[in-house]
Design a protein around this nucleic acid. Structure first.
Lengths: 342, 342
DNA sequence: AGACTTTCTGAAAACGTTTACTTGGCGCCG
DNA sequence: CGGCGCCAAGTAAACGTTTTCAGAAAGTCT
């Protein structure tokens, strides 16, 4: 159906080589030939077949983006950062999500081979077959938040441990004795790091109290219900991500437990939503869009210089404590506390 | 670097045809040959080159997704809907954003030719060159919320007019006389439809009051500031999308104007965030993920049956009024009623 | 005016697959 | 015992490009 370069050549009464040359103005062609080709191409609505083209020039101008999920504000932000950087470079994005399933991830990897110039992957999932051998060999790859970071290529990992420790320490410093933690899934690298940070931040005297969750709002809600009904309600709750913190906030509010008056609350990630809930959520800011941008830049240099790709540098992405009203330790004591406005 | 089918063939001492046959188990091969091929393939870490493969089988198992932007909850939801449906069908997604720039869109379209089996496009931008002739001919396409919907293929358009009219009518029925509208950008199809719906919903007696915006939270904030400072403050504000409504809400709250007590507020889209702000936002629900899913399904049938693609059916996606506290007309009459939903 | 250089164009190979066609070996039946 | 069909495996064409190489035409210099 679609016109090929042959059709254009035939119509312009030239060889396909001349068509190619005019369209890429690679080497000089006679004005006459050029005009004929251009006219034929536009008449036929000719659009080069990018697949065939990339087969021979060995460049697709596409990079693969493999994420555990593409839903939610966290990944949306990440994609945004990657997309901006990619578009600035004239690159396209082939996205895929693995849903924590390593077999699916391997399958996605296979089908990306020959379709992308490089790969940006985030795979915090732990367990199952290693990803390393599923990776098409020779494909430049940059990892994000992946525990197998070493040995593949460049990698960026968020300072989950440091952030969680700092947040816990902050709550401790604010005077809370009994601080609970709603954790993420057990097979998630970041989740583990945050638990570790929480434990480290508690210090020696305090006892850890960890509630299971899975990073979803629903699991946070459940945890909140349990906490509200519990006889031994903690003084503060630190959720391993913002969505769980928000779910928890809803459960608490519903149960008549006021945040931060009755219980302090904190999250992790600083998703855009965090500042919109009431009270605004104290959290740990992760510049996830920025991480995406940097990861892409790093991938680009790895693509340009495949030899140096061996140096597997792991870069830590810093995080920042964002203190808002929900933890009760807010400096200014903002007037916009909505929980009183019933 | 990466091994090709030839390398496998050489190592297994068979022809490349036999390799292909074993790997796709298309026709029967001797157990002996089969074993040799499999062993060689795994030894060499062979992964088929998807680009070359799709060149000859004329199928990429990828669909292109072209959106004005990929940022924000609205598009995130849309992508989610498309992604789920695509992954259920074993398809990949090649995403691109146009940022309201039709030239960029045309460029993106060109480079998608030969890389995708079909195209899912949302292009509410009005003006500039028509998209119709930028479309690679013969590429199955499904449009969403695009004013040029006719003549290209199947299309889905949200009932922006109906939703806006219903919302305005709701505010009128709630007793508000003076209802302002914060509109979206002037060159956006949906934006225009919503203004039109607003005007229709006002009815005969009332006078329209339209404030300019551009669908961003910032523009809503500005509008809110203007309104709060205005001597003739309206009784209700209907923003053309939720993000502007939320920006407006912040400006109003900051200026000490209470919502809904002093002024009613409503948005459009029902993004996830809408129910989290306080007061929860009255809005018009658009099942945007569902639209994405349906659009993809529709695209799949168009791909499978390219002949019938000519029937350019335009399907209207229904919307639904979601009344929460921010418009002051909530059933219970009090602001604290929490709207259920997920 | 002849040889040499320059410039443009076309033929053909290459990219990595799939697949139609061909070959050759083997058993079966007449 | 010879032809016939069958089946496995190999050869080569095809997909739509880019690019190298060679050839031809034209211009330039002595």
């Amino acid at each position: 159906m679609a016109a090929t370069i042959k059709d254009v050549a035939r119509r312009a009464r030239v060889s396909i080589a001349s068509v190619s040359r005019t369209l890429n103005n690679s080497s000089s062609v006679t004005p006459n030939v050029r005009a004929r080709v251009l006219r034929a191409a536009s008449r036929l609505h000719y659009t080069p077949h990018a697949g065939a083209r990339s087969l021979i020039i060995r460049r697709t101008h596409t990079i693969g983006l493999l994420l555990p999920d593409i839903h939610g504000e966290y990944f949306s932000e990440l994609i945004r950062g990657v997309d901006r950087a990619a578009r600035a470079r004239g690159l396209h994005l082939l996205v895929s999500s693995t849903h924590g399933n390593n077999a699916e991830a391997a399958e996605a990897l296979r089908s990306m081979n020959g379709r992308v110039d490089g790969l940006l992957m985030m795979s915090p999932y732990i367990g199952g077959a290693s990803l390393e051998d599923a990776l098409p060999s020779g494909l430049p790859t940059v990892l994000m938040n992946t525990h197998e970071a070493a040995g593949i290529g460049a990698a960026f990992v968020v300072d989950d441990f440091g952030g969680a420790r700092a947040m816990t320490a902050h709550l401790v410093a604010a005077g809370y004795q009994d601080i609970a933690h709603i954790r993420g899934p057990a097979n998630d690298f970041q989740s583990l790091e945050r638990v570790r940070g929480y434990r480290a931040g508690l210090g020696a005297g305090r006892v850890a109290r960890v509630i299971d969750g899975d990073f979803t709002e629903g699991s946070g809600y459940l945890a909140g219900r349990v906490l509200a009904a519990s006889g031994t309600r903690p003084q503060a709750v630190f959720a391993a991500n913002d969505m769980m913190a928000i779910g928890c906030l809803f459960a608490l509010t519903e149960a008549g437990v006021r945040v931060p008056h009755d219980i302090a609350l904190a999250g992790f990630d600083d998703i855009p939503l965090a500042r919109f809930v009431s009270p605004p959520l104290t959290t740990v800011r992760v510049e996830v869009a920025e991480m995406g941008r940097r990861a892409l830049e790093s991938l680009i240099v790895a693509i340009a210089d495949p030899d140096a790709a061996g140096r597997s540098s792991v870069e830590t992405v810093p995080v920042e404590l964002v203190v808002r009203a929900s933890c009760g330790a807010h400096s200014g004591g903002r007037a916009r506390c909505k929980e009183a406005g019933d």
